[in-house]
């Protein structure tokens, strides 16, 4: 069914089932729940340790027996800032925000065109988009470097904005297409009978339905753009470097200062971790080009 109507609210919640019979089942569930918690904590532990270390003094961080109890300090974060992370953060923000805006600007109309008003070649276009994601970046880095060098755009943040847009656009089109397709066709027909012009239908009826999807798409673009390293390391230097590039330079110079490294890594990872937590329900939909909901 294209259209689903959720159950009316006046249906009563079923009464709680009688307890005793479920005991055996829930005992197993409790144990497996404990296992799940242990595994979850194990997976998360390195991240936790990184954050913890970032609040340590170097002497507390650099011990053969890991220290859990220590006096927390913000010194390491100050150190990262005085090492000059500022401009790199600004570059990362510019690259991420502008590429994401550009993706939405180009992608929303495209997704609309391929989903709600398809023409004959629509499928070909869709598969062209997806095929570009399968083209390895290494196969294009050489000419991109040569061309960018020739037009004098090396070490320029707008170069990254353009490349990140190209990198994220196919994913965004596919993902938003799947959200557009969830809009019931009857609604659009009703709107056309009601006499709403196309742009009003889009703004007043379609957009409110798909805006959570667009938001999730934007977050996924943010994650990819913020984390991108290959283009950044090859096409930028002192002026347009992003946070991952800063991190690399920082390691080479501060190799032995674990606490400060942890602070830098935490700062690099924090924005996208939060974005990812918010978008976690739609992550798979984005990465699988909308094939999985």
């Amino acid at each position: 069914m294209a259209v689903t109507t959720s159950t009316p609210p006046d249906t009563q919640e079923p009464a709680a089932p009688p307890e005793p019979r479920r005991q055996k089942r829930s005992a197993a569930n409790v144990w497996l729940g404990v296992v799940a918690w242990i595994v979850g904590i194990a997976f998360f532990f390195p991240v936790f340790w990184m954050v913890l270390t970032s609040f340590k003094q170097e002497t507390d961080a650099y011990t053969t027996t890991p220290k859990i109890i220590f006096e927390p300090t913000l010194e390491q974060y100050e150190g990262v800032f005085s090492a000059g992370v500022g401009p790199y953060l600004v570059n990362s923000v510019i690259a991420t925000v502008f590429s994401t805006l550009l993706v939405l600007l180009l992608g929303i109309p495209a997704a609309f065109a391929v989903s709600l008003r398809p023409v004959k070649k629509t499928q070909d276009v869709l598969f062209f988009f997806i095929s570009t994601k399968m083209l390895p970046v290494v196969a294009v880095i050489v000419p991109i470097y040569v061309v960018v060098n020739q037009i004098g755009m090396l070490d320029n943040i707008w170069t990254l904005v353009v490349l990140y847009t190209g990198m994220n656009l196919p994913i965004a089109v596919w993902m938003m297409r799947s959200f557009f397709l969830e809009v019931p066709g009857e609604l659009l027909e009703q709107a056309s009978i009601d006499g709403a012009p196309l742009w009003r239908t889009l703004r007043e009826i379609v957009l409110p339905i798909i805006s959570p999807g667009i938001f999730a798409t934007a977050l996924i673009c943010v994650i990819f753009a913020w984390n991108e390293f290959f283009f950044a390391v090859n096409l930028t230097a002192a002026n347009a470097g992003t946070v991952p590039v800063f991190l690399v330079g920082f390691i080479t110079s501060e190799g032995l200062y674990w606490a400060q490294l942890s602070a830098a890594a935490t700062m690099a990872a924090l924005p996208v971790v939060i974005a990812g937590w918010v978008a976690q329900n739609k992550l798979v939909q984005g990465l699988s080009f909308g094939a999985v909901k």
């Binding site: 997976f43 984390n227 990872a269 971790v273 990812g276 937590w277």
Partner: peptide, 8 residues
């Protein structure tokens, strides 16, 4: 969370 962490 590990999936979200910046790869670098």
């Amino acid at each position: 969370t590990p999936f979200l962490i910046t790869p670098v």
